[in-house]
Amino acid sequence: MSTPTTGSLRVPGATLHYEVRGRGPLLLLIPGGTGGAAAFDGVADALAAEYTIASYDPRGMSRSPLDDPEAGQSVAEHAEDALRLLDLLSPAEPARVFGSSSGAIAALHLLTARPERLVRLVAHEPPVVEVLPDAPAHRAFLARVRDTLDAEGLVPAMGVFAAGLKRADGEGQGTAEGRADRDAEPSARAGLPPAAAARVERTMGDLPYFLGRIVPGFMAYSPDLRRLEAVSDRLVLAGGRDSRGELPYRPAAFLAERFGKELLHFPGGHIGLSTHPAEFGGVLRQAFLY
């Protein structure tokens, strides 16, 4: 794995950490969850043979601190951050963009707000559940996550959240599963190279911020479907081959059908980027060729 060039970009309310590899037209990678720029380590080098690859830690995550640690978060603000990186790294030319999960939500907003700045967007499982016919059930699910976080803390709330994402209807509890994952953290870090151990540490450290402030605002976001359809020629909607029917998959499938587009399938499930990086990168490369 090559060592990227790193930089810091001051934006209103935060300082963004970003990483750049390769040369050629810009491909901006927007991570979801708590992955940060490191989420793309498994695919960046291969893509850098053809593109200038830029990735970053979204505001409030890992190495992108907020000026006010308690500041609320919005999809529009995160999309503006992505735009500022495009303007910094590709000021004269529109760019290619890939977004995953919550990163795909920010990317969808960017596409509708500034379509002229994007050649193409590949949006992998954006959980914009407000577009679904059963959106009220998913609002109730998110309310359960919030209530569990307030009453019982992070580990039970992560269990409820993870289990709900696995179900199309947003039901499910799953506290035991979440607790088991959390309890496994020390062994997961044991024996890892220092850089990998640091990534795990950052990921786990970002969970309270992600669950408490990213999830509520992002999963309540409703894209402007009229504007999105008008620029859908620049949009590739994607899902995981192993996550068909799960909650994050359904909005991408719904929007693809609504816009009359084929849904692109990546290997693995919602986190196929981590579980199948080589194959995932190959599919992503092809997505920008047609």
Rank of each mutant, 00 (worst) to 15 (best):
T3L: 15
P12K: 02
L16P: 04
R21H: 12
G24C: 06
G24K: 06
L26H: 13
L26V: 12
P31F: 04
A38P: 04
G42E: 01
V43H: 12
D45H: 10
A46Y: 08
T52L: 04
T52N: 11
I53M: 10
I53D: 10
D57K: 12
D57T: 06
R59I: 02
S62E: 02
D67H: 10
G72W: 09
G72T: 11
V75W: 04
E77W: 09
H78Q: 09
A79I: 02
L83C: 00
L89Y: 12
S90I: 00
P91Y: 13
P94L: 06
R96T: 08
F98S: 04
G99Q: 06
S100D: 10
S100P: 04
S101L: 12
I105F: 03
L108V: 03
H109M: 03
T112A: 05
R114D: 06
P115V: 03
L118C: 10
L121G: 07
V122P: 01
P126W: 02
A137H: 10
H138A: 03
R139W: 06
F141E: 13
A143I: 03
R144H: 14
G153V: 01
A162P: 07
D169W: 10
T175Y: 09
A176R: 13
A176L: 15
D181V: 08
E185A: 04
A188V: 07
R189P: 01
P193N: 08
A195F: 11
A196M: 13
V200H: 10
E201T: 09
M204G: 08
G205D: 13
D206R: 04
D206I: 01
F210Y: 15
Y221E: 05
D224W: 01
R226S: 09
A230V: 03
R234Y: 04
L235R: 14
G239M: 01
R241P: 01
G245A: 11
R250N: 00
P251S: 06
P251E: 07
A252I: 05
A253H: 10
L255V: 00
E257V: 01
L263K: 08
G272D: 10
L273P: 05
T275D: 13
E279H: 11
G282L: 05
V283H: 12
